[in-house]
Write a protein that binds this DNA or RNA. Sequence first.
DNA 1: CGGTTTTCCCGAAACGTTTCGGAAAACATA
DNA 2: TATGTTTTCCGAAACGTTTCGGGAAAACCG
Lengths: 340, 340
Amino acid sequence: MATLKDIARALDLSITQVSRALNDHSDVNEETRLRVKATARAMNYHPNASARKLVSGRSGMVGLVVPQYRNIGQDRLFMEVVAGLSTQFSGRGMQFVLHMMAEHEPALPVYQKLIGTAMLDGFVLIDPMEQDPRIDFLRKAGICFVVHGRSGKVIDYPYFDIENEQLAYDLTAHLTQRGHRRIAFLNGRADRSYVTVREQGYLRALRDGRGEVLPHLHLNGDMDEAHGLTDTIRLFSGDAPRPTAIVCGNVRLARGVYQGLEALGLSVPGDVSVVAHDDELPALRASAFFPSLTVTKSPLRDSWEPLADCLAGAIEGKPLGTLQRLGSYSFIERNSVASL
Amino acid sequence: MATLKDIARALDLSITQVSRALNDHSDVNEETRLRVKATARAMNYHPNASARKLVSGRSGMVGLVVPQYRNIGQDRLFMEVVAGLSTQFSGRGMQFVLHMMAEHEPALPVYQKLIGTAMLDGFVLIDPMEQDPRIDFLRKAGICFVVHGRSGKVIDYPYFDIENEQLAYDLTAHLTQRGHRRIAFLNGRADRSYVTVREQGYLRALRDGRGEVLPHLHLNGDMDEAHGLTDTIRLFSGDAPRPTAIVCGNVRLARGVYQGLEALGLSVPGDVSVVAHDDELPALRASAFFPSLTVTKSPLRDSWEPLADCLAGAIEGKPLGTLQRLGSYSFIERNSVASL
DNA sequence: CGGTTTTCCCGAAACGTTTCGGAAAACATA
DNA sequence: TATGTTTTCCGAAACGTTTCGGGAAAACCG
């Protein structure tokens, strides 16, 4: 491996000047800079990340820590995250590193160890809980991170998020405006922060639109087809008042809801209206539903670039204001809603 | 972060002696060693991987580089690899790091860069091709690696593999011994080394058992249900002589074969006998087939431990002889084969 | 021409660890 | 007493990089 010393010797320069030339410092002759960069390339020089990290505190590596949960193999979403972030950081000349925890391993010690060895410049946190302990932990440790979503009340850290409250409001309001009063909400798992936020939007829309607030119509769980199906069956069984419309946290849930309604002999939108939020994961297109599905849409794949931006910015020490981003979404009306 | 210096100061020892104590060197008083280790734990000391790597050449991190191919999201196998290796290396106090390449990015420059920055101690290579260029490249660069499988003729590197030649032989011979003469083989993609090796076993068994060697009965392709289905339809269409038995490279292929045969109105094993190799991936059990499937079985999940062993051993400089392992497999006879 | 600024460069220190080559002390051997 | 041996320790160098503080020479200014 070629080192700075090798280049310096070859060009009869000091190590200092070679380093400064390669890092585009100001006080180096333009012609020298070019010569240095040329020979660096010719000698196939790559800066030693360990040495660099040791002195400057930066290695150019960032990490993602994920738990190894049971269904991760089928989890299309997870691969999206890894592929998307990996690509983004590669494009910035950084290394993206995935660390998978054992199934029920506690997360904090893992971060502890990773921080202790000081190999990484920062972390991407996905799937934040309400009051996520990782955030406190990393902040106290003084490590850079960016959160996909927002957690807790004090939001003084870099994040990328979409307006989950407003999105749930819009979906629900779309239904109240068409006369629906009993609207079910198939939400995600109750411990996730975005789930709480969406619930607030749902409730606000019900209040604004004179919808009925019925606890049994708000359901939490994994947002997959199976839950969409079983939740639907449950909603339309028993004596409790039944909904005339269903808001789904994602399109996978909606797919299950469609199946459940079909099994029950109910039609969309004749008997029940359905709307959903669409992350635009591949292999499940809301427009290809029959009848096609009305959604709020914000492609998940638009998250990776701002996330990488924010983390890279945080590592460079940019001010917090530039490191908090909100993604937009669009409302797409299709054929899955009827007026009452 | 606590450093060696902090511990040394706290115990009024030299940095040298603290380092030696922590690394279990011989010339340190037993009582001192204990004292050092105790305070290290108390101060929550973790050795700085960068500093260590810089001087000793070891960071305790190993990597896996994977291409980001189209269907990786559905690829249960891929997650098995990541989860399995991650767990194994964690258990050895090492960090396992995943690097995902862009979809058609050439691999060698990625390794080049990863090696150049010198953050990793070694690599795990999966899915080797015949004469895989990565092997030559890493060997020339002097980087440790272990291969899941074997590639090329000169096998002078650490690997873990199963006896693919013999396994294909056994499956095929099981059929010739029961009177089958026209035996199809649904093999993997032609560029993989294990595919070539299995083909050799298949052909050897045909020769030994007086089977017919018919090129149109040996098919290559992705080993998924879709290919099993379409290959089966193809085998039983047209004028070419049809097989009486099918050997499948894995259970997913066999699932497709069963579906294809059912669609064609052919019964297993009445009309066609089927055998397969079983990697024991979750969610697809050969014993749950109807009729239950005769297989050679060697669980893929048994690979991760020897792979990690071999790579860790290579990094420690153990001799090559201890770093080459062969996994075993078992033959399980069930109800998918009939005698002619 | 004297003084000031600008341009370009360099030596040395530092980061946290491992390791080489001793070396003091205690103890045994002759 | 002199000589070796073992035990336990330490100073200093090294790994490859960045960066601080300076400094020589050239260019500019009045």
